[in-house]
Design a binder for these strands. Structure first.
Length: 268
DNA sequence: CAGATATTAGAGGACGACCT
DNA sequence: AGGTCGTCCTCTAATATCTG
């Protein structure tokens, strides 16, 4: 699939909106290289009216990072997925750019690393009083094996109380949850992706060598260790934790379990 | 005017068609 | 099979433009 079509398809999978920064090239050596081709592709798509910028209420500083684009009706026709086009001309800026951007980073990570799966991704799915940021159901193309992930992207000052309460809420609901009633007929895992307020979630891996960034990564790493020490009472097979800076390699065995093991997403 | 961000030109790699 | 050529694609480096 050529690059513009791939971007359109993935953008639809991401709920119809994304930034250029979300679509950076992981293999590039520098941040400039990581974005140059994406810029070109986005500009072409915009010229052909296949995507359009979303008007923002306040002026954005860095266009690549903060300017969201939405796929157009024409764009969804172009890839033959008209039915999935939901962004009915709404041009309001996403309320929380950073959070929206992080969620797309995680979702796109799934799409990029698990080619052998068919995805169903929902952004506003709710189960009783649980509203995960991201609902991901993936089905293996040949074995038909299914996995379900409820993803919480948490950007909070400290890990302890807020996360603890949030997870407590999850566990209260899930401990005697009727999974079948909500069509959750596959193993369900809750993924918690944590960042603090100091970590600039627009940073790409190509910038991680900067001293400034390394300091923040180290802080995040320590905080996740601390978080890990607080969640040991949770069921081992239901929860997985990750620091946000690892978003670009979420297919590796880097997810922490409540007992502190490192596992891959599809492992138990 | 300086620093940040965007565009452009061209190097170089990947891949496939075709020939020997 | 192995070699070569051509095309396409993505990256880096240089240059241009924007912004405060």
């Amino acid at each position: 699939m050529d690059k513009p079509k791939l971007i359109l398809n993935q953008m639809l999978d991401l709920g119809g909106i994304a930034t250029k920064n979300n679509f950076f090239s992981p293999e590039a050596k520098t941040i400039l290289g990581a974005l140059v081709h994406t810029r070109k592709a986005f500009n072409e798509l915009e010229n052909q009216k296949l995507i359009k910028p979303i008007n923002t209420i306040t002026k954005v500083r860095n266009l690549c990072q903060e300017q969201f684009f939405s796929i157009s009706r024409l764009g969804s026709q172009f890839v033959g997925r008209t039915k999935e086009y939901k962004w009915k001309g709404a041009t309001k800026s996403p309320y929380n750019i950073m959070h929206e951007s992080m969620i797309r980073d995680i979702a796109l990570g799934f799409l990029r690393f698990y080619h052998q799966f068919i995805f169903e991704i929902q952004y506003h799915q709710s189960f009783t009083n649980l509203r995960p940021d991201l609902f991901i159901k993936m089905t293996h193309k040949s074995t038909m094996k299914q996995y379900i992930f409820l993803v919480e992207v948490e950007r909070k000052k400290t890990v302890d109380r807020v996360i603890n309460e949030k997870l407590q809420k999850y566990e209260n609901v899930l401990k005697d949850f009727n999974f079948k009633r909500y069509n959750l007929n596959a193993p369900v895992k809750v993924l918690v992706v944590y960042a603090n307020l100091d970590f600039n979630c627009f940073w790409r891996p190509q910038e991680y060598f900067n001293q400034e960034v390394r300091v923040e990564i180290e802080k995040l790493h320590k905080q996740l260790q601390y978080l890990s020490s607080l969640v040991r009472y949770l069921p081992e097979n239901r929860y997985r934790f990750l620091s946000f800076y690892n978003f670009y390699r979420l297919h590796e065995p880097i997810w922490l379990t409540p007992s502190g093991r490192h596992v891959g997403l599809l492992d138990n």
